[in-house]
């Protein structure tokens, strides 16, 4: 390639390097530029702070029982009141939230990531890869998730909650992966993917660089929905006595217990239910802003 001296000089003159922020930076910048994103993030951070640092403030631990106060309304002694067993609602709720937050967020992220990867590989390579992956997807779809989880619940008892997260995620991804697969099939025909192919970019890189980012809107929305789905699945599992086992508590088990006494002792129910609602709301706010942040075509504040 020949470049004339004149041009070379011109290029030397403008040696200000092309400075371009990385994709991560751009997304982060856009995310925090929206007030919705900031609010969601702050709310979620607050929830985490409450769940992990909150118990230090209270005088009671979640295992303590105050035998002088059964089912008492909130007071200076017990900020959020007590349960029928004498347990402090504040301590128990925060403990439960700690579990639910971690389980819900992790399961959602793992589930969505699994859906994206399996769907994109099946859709991109088609052929045998597709057939094998589709078969696995269909198999997991027909397995009764609840039953499997119930059978496996003794495993989670011994503090094996990461396993619980994995199993929960394993039953969250199939439908999304089918959507991802069909989107990949159509995306594969797009010219920018073809251009990357003809450039010599390896297929796996194409999938992670072009295919999955172009479905980020779907994936973020899916992950957001999965957070609530995971928390609620965990809740219902715990409700039936599977999942998180006593003496450990989760928001689910608390809500289940609290629902019985909600009418005449609302504090047993409303604090944990309220926190669940706030958490899901925060996750939705974050998800919404994240989706816009990923999508450069979305313009916030356009007149």
């Amino acid at each position: 390639m020949t470049i004339t001296d004149e041009e070379l000089a011109e290029q030397r003159a403008g040696l200000d390097a092309v400075r371009v922020p990385s994709r991560l930076r751009v997304v982060a910048g856009r995310f925090f530029a929206s007030s919705q994103g900031r609010a969601g993030f702050a709310l979620l951070a607050l929830m985490f702070l409450l769940a992990f640092a909150g118990p230090c403030l209270g005088r009671w631990s979640y295992t303590d029982k105050d035998f002088t106060a059964f089912l008492r309304a909130p007071s200076a002694e017990h900020w959020w009141g007590t349960l029928q067993t004498g347990a402090d609602v504040y301590a128990v709720t925060l403990r439960g939230m700690r579990r639910s937050l971690v389980v819900g967020l992790l399961a959602a992220v793992v589930g969505t990531a699994l859906a994206a990867v399996v769907g994109a590989f099946a859709g991109y390579f088609l052929g045998w890869t597709d057939r094998a992956l589709t078969w696995v997807t269909d198999l997991l779809l027909v397995l009764p998730a609840f039953l499997v989880l119930a059978i496996m619940s003794p495993l989670f008892a011994g503090g094996q909650w990461p396993l619980f997260v994995l199993v929960l995620a394993l039953f969250l991804w199939m439908v999304t992966s089918k959507i991802v697969r069909s989107m990949t099939v159509s995306l594969k025909e797009r010219e920018f993917i073809q251009a990357a192919r003809f450039m010599g970019v390896p297929p796996v890189k194409i999938i992670f660089r072009h295919v999955i980012p172009n479905m980020s809107s779907l994936l973020v929305v899916d992950a957001t929905l999965n957070v609530s789905a995971a928390i609620l699945t965990e809740t219902s599992l715990s409700y039936f006595g599977f999942g998180i086992q006593p003496p450990d508590v989760s928001l689910g088990s608390l809500i289940a217990d609290g629902a019985k006494t909600a009418v005449y002792a609302p504090w047993t129910f409303w604090f944990c239910a309220g926190l669940l609602i706030v958490t899901v709301l925060a996750v939705n706010l974050v998800g919404d802003s994240l989706r816009d942040a990923f999508d450069p075509t979305a313009r916030k504040g356009r007149q």
């Binding site: 371009v20 920018f192 251009a195 075509t297």
Partner: peptide, 18 residues
């Protein structure tokens, strides 16, 4: 190398020009 017909479709909308 190749240049495609529709410039919008042949550039990944999620990537900067860089």
């Amino acid at each position: 190398q190749v240049v495609f017909q529709d410039p919008l479709a042949s550039l990944d909308p999620r990537m900067t020009v860089y």
